[in-house]
Design a protein around this nucleic acid. Sequence first.
DNA 1: ATGTCATGATAAC
DNA 2: TTATCCTGACATA
Length: 275
Amino acid sequence: MPEGHTIHRLAQDLKASLEGSRLKVSSPQGRFEDAVLLDGRMLTAATAIGKHLFLFFGTLCVHIHLGLFGRFRLQRAPFLPPRGAVRLHLEGDSVCWSLSGPTVCECIDDEAFHALKARLGADPLSTGSRPKGAWFQFHRSKRGVGAALLDQRLFAGIGNVYRAELLFLTGLHPETRCCDIDKSTFEKLWRLAVKLLKQGVKYKRIVTVAGATKSAPKREAVYVYKRRLCRVCETAIAQLQSANRTLYFCPHCQSAPTLPEKPLRARRQQKQFAQ
DNA sequence: ATGTCATGATAAC
DNA sequence: TTATCCTGACATA
């Protein structure tokens, strides 16, 4: 479930429950050997940038990326032995967290931290972040906006669900070339990203439909992602592969890009799914 | 028991 | 462009 909102919420929750405490740190699964370096130290900060999570134990920094499968599970005392493959176990007095399935869980030095930071684009969830650099690259790029939204060097934290929903809410066909999108549309995209991701942090889930509540059933929480019919016009949702992921969109609400002629491949695909 | 899929990203061809 | 890594939930047999 991890897009940027998940990681930022995690940073908040880890901070609230463990910051300032000395922790028992281990790697029950054994694949994070540096856990021993952290054991008995105090968690001094937890922060998120895009989909990356950083835990600070004084000068030591743990870099975590959940990838597609990673998750943190919370337990309150009394703790049961963690099940499954737990890469990292953090235990305070009253709560403990178990991390399983991350793509990355490693200790990094200050230099690596800054290098990582430098290669990430504008994060809709970092306070005061503005997409100036993103726009600079965006407006001169010929690739499709769908692919661009998943590029973490441009936008840090947007994932496959938000991508589809943002494109829908902006009325953009995913294959519209970035360079054919004007600045006001780009800014609309950014403002929506900020608003929706923030709401995702608050709700601990992705809800993009206007007026839908925190507890809205899955089918009513999104406009197009993994839906059969468009939430608004009930046209059959189409899909295509973009940046190695399935991108869902409404061929009616998201008008086809005008120039240049759409590639034949895309037209066929659209036809195939649009019955 | 086995297969499939997933809100991610990278390295290699 | 493909192959690969990470884990678990659910479907099918």
